[in-house]
Write a protein that binds this DNA or RNA. Structure first.
Length: 573
RNA sequence: CGGGGCGUAGCGCAGCUUGGUAGCGUGUCCGUUUCGGGUGCGGAAGGCCGGAGGUUCAAAUCCUCUCGCCCCGACCA
């Protein structure tokens, strides 16, 4: 296409509302325009990138036997009542009524719709496995849309679903997807890590997230410096470090601690109270039931782990009143010693694994301004269950190799789940197996955010001048810039090159504008096409320049060789 | 939903404290000039000052309400 005829509304200055690099640059370079909070129009350049992303995904999905569907975005509410997710996801769903007053929702994801098809049409194990996918607009009424395309209320998702007879089949479908996702992101030129993740509201047993490491993301991932261990902080586990017990007595003894309310204050009060020798006591309300969570004094609770462990629909910290009425003391003097789950308002007491076998610990006495020392956890505290509830922090020890863990900010671009029979059971999707028995279909669910992938690519690859697209995602393979767009000979050469390149399957953007060179270079750099041919003064010698956007490297190429050189660059790059 | 910030020309902003004819930069249009990193000069068009109500002789400016956008937090695939 000729730039002079294209709609590429570039901006000289950063838009005031934009904060993150991808937001600023996609706006400035004329890719997107906002329509409302978290709602964006994709302009022609963005649509070209979007289609490149979609085509890569489509090829890889087809390669693992995926079959493309298009399902409705508008769903009758009953479908979501049936799966039970109207309650868990209701807040994030856009809801509307039709003219007859029937309730509908806009789909946030499509487990329900695909399952409703599967339950009618899949009846025999002979029909399995199946992998079904689509590219569809998802609507999510986000609490806070932000960062341009990174967190929006309407976006395209590639979602796929696998249907298998048993969990071995699911494992296979899951692994196929994992491999496909790795190829997709690699082909798209995105540097990513696959991490263990929490399944959250999706339900199911296992999940892997595909993350891009960038400060523009909202997730935290834990990475090991010694091995390939990688997990979302929501899920990450660290080894328990060994250290000597406190030197205090082993007899339980109540002692006054006037005004001491925090672990830190207590640690300064006496040697015995060092943070790791204390027990931190937290009260939570899980689905309206009060539970106690005990952690080592220097550890923090990971609420996702607790929610997942309890399979709770809601979890929140108890308020002051609830705490006092259940424990008889205020936060700061709480402890697990003497708490009877059979009698009081506390129904369960969970202990973090890091407390296992600890003696000579200090904890609150459930009496304001008093603590216990000499606490022997196994002896003095009644545990409902032990588990891993603590949040991993930078510097912790890797459970796999003993290396050191670090926490990095990251952006989720894909997520794959083993759903199991969560949906097939509640929605009654089953098949007959060879024995004649009816078994629920074992499902998996797999998503990639298409526009988020675009934005992630920009976050990872840009400079002061603008975007630098990976070759595979760039809206055009190359820009042919006729530097003096007013000069007929140069323009004619540009047109010929444009035709030749196009004929050999290369997407060319011909910058034929009669603007000043500096102006055009700045625009060229901004939109981020990775390769550029400059047709300038050397044209009279039959030579043009090939410029690499990323490095600025500049080489002369004989006009007659350009097609060949570019073909190699485009396919090889 | 809590906290903070912002709505004035296509975009970026000033003006508001102390009410009195709405400005600057950039972009756009016309002319001219220039032609390898956002040219120089001359001219022009373009604003319901987010919306509603109030105070006042007079409101972009003061007061009340409201709508929208951005950031932080809570939350979330």
């Amino acid at each position: 296409m000729r730039w002079s005829q294209l709609f590429i509304p570039t901006l000289k200055e950063d838009p005031a509302a934009a904060e993150t690099a991808s937001h600023k640059l996609l706006m400035r370079a004329g890719y997107i325009r906002p329509l409302g909070s978290g709602i964006y129009s994709l302009l022609p350049l963005a649509q070209r990138v979007r289609l490149k992303v979609i085509n890569i995904i489509r090829e890889e999905m087809n390669a693992i036997g995926g079959q493309e569907f298009v399902l409705p975005a508008l769903h009758p509410t009953e479908l979501w009542e049936e799966s039970g997710r109207l309650g868990t996801m209701g807040d994030i769903m856009f809801r509307l009524k039709d003219r007859k007053g029937s309730d509908h929702v806009l789909g946030v994801t499509h487990e329900e719709v695909f399952t409703s098809i599967a339950r009618n049409a899949l009846n025999s194990y002979r029909q399995l496995p199946q992998i079904w996918y689509q590219f569809q607009t998802k609507f999510r009424d986000e609490l806070r849309p932000k960062s341009g395309l990174l967190r929006v209320r309407e976006f395209t998702m590639k979602d796929s679903y696998s249907f298998d007879v048993d969990s071995a089949g699911l494992d296979k479908s899951f692994d196929l997807h994992k491999a496909a996702y790795e190829r997709i992101f690699a082909r798209a030129g995105l540097k990513f890590v696959a991490v263990e993740a929490s399944s959250g509201a999706m339900g199911g047993s296992a999940s892997t997230e595909f993350m891009v490491l960038t400060d523009a993301g909202e997730d935290m991932v834990v990475l090991c410096n010694g091995c390939d261990y990688a997990a979302n902080v929501e899920k990450a586990v660290a080894a328990v470090d060994e250290y000597a017990f406190g030197n205090g007595q082993s007899e339980l003894e109540k002692f006054p601690t006037p005004g001491l309310r925090t672990v830190e204050q207590l640690a300064n009060f006496a040697d015995i109270g060092a943070a790791k020798n204390q027990i931190k006591t937290l009260v939570y309300s899980a689905d309206d039931q009060l539970v106690l969570v005990l952690l080592r004094g220097d550890h923090e609770l990971n609420t996702t782990k607790l929610t997942d462990y309890l399979a709770a629909e809601s979890l929140r910290a108890a308020d002051d009143q609830e705490i006092f009425s259940a424990m008889g003391a205020h936060a700061g003097s709480l402890g697990g010693v003497g708490v009877k789950t059979s009698a009081g308002k506390i129904k369960k007491v969970f202990l973090d694994n890091a407390l296992k076998g600890r003696r000579n610990m200090v904890t609150g006495a459930n009496h304001d301004d008093f603590h216990y020392k000499g606490v022997d956890i196994e002896r003095d505290i009644e545990a409902t269950a032990w588990g891993d509830f603590r949040a991993v922090k930078t510097g912790d020890t890797c459970i796999k190799c003993g290396g050191t863990l670090t926490i990095e900010k990251s952006l989720e671009i894909g997520h794959i789940f083993k759903l199991g029979t969560r949906y097939s059971t509640t929605m009654d999707a089953s098949v007959l197996v060879s024995s004649g028995e009816k078994v629920p279909i074992v499902m998996g669910s797999y998503g990639i955010g298409v526009e988020r992938m675009m934005a992630a690519a920009v976050e990872l690859s840009h400079d002061k001048k603008g975007i630098i697209w990976p070759q595979a995602l760039s809206p055009y393979d190359v820009i042919v810039n006729v530097i003096n767009g007013a000069e007929e000979e140069a323009l004619a050469a540009g047109e010929k090159l444009y035709a030749d390149l196009s004929a050999s399957g290369i997407d060319v953007l011909l910058d034929d504008r009669a603007e000043r060179p500096g102006f055009k270079f700045a625009d060229n750099d901004l939109i981020g096409v990775p390769l550029r041919i400059n047709i300038g003064k050397k044209l009279k010698d039959g030579v043009v320049e090939l410029v690499e956007r990323s490095t600025g490297a500049n080489e002369d190429v004989e006009l007659q060789n350009v097609v060949q050189v570019l073909k190699q660059k485009v396919s090889g790059g």
